[in-house]
Amino acid sequence: MDAENKQYMPWICDKCKKELILRKVKARYLEGNFEVELMKCPVCSMVFIEEDLAMGKMLEVEKGLEDK
């Protein structure tokens, strides 16, 4: 997800009323630690994860790590 391919993002943080920004975010599961670029609120840091990502790539990585 680099800046050029940045998709149209209508979602805002409801609490802070801020537009989301693309930032490197830490993710971890079992023995795995990674950094991924995801949309987050610049104020409260709440990270936005859309359904396709959760049920697609994330699930795949989770399963992969579970079989390690």
Binding site: V25, K26, A27, R28, Y29, L38, K40, C44, S45, M46, V47, I49, E51, A54, M55, M58, L59, V61, E62
Partner: peptide, 24 residues
């Protein structure tokens, strides 16, 4: 993902993941 319609809540989708995202 939901909508608030008066006193009702319409659910549009639900999903989950096990991976933990660090919000900092």
């Amino acid at each position: 993902r939901y909508e608030e319609k008066d006193d009702k809540i319409l659910i549009n989708s639900i999903y989950s993941h096990r991976m933990e995202i660090v919000e900092e």
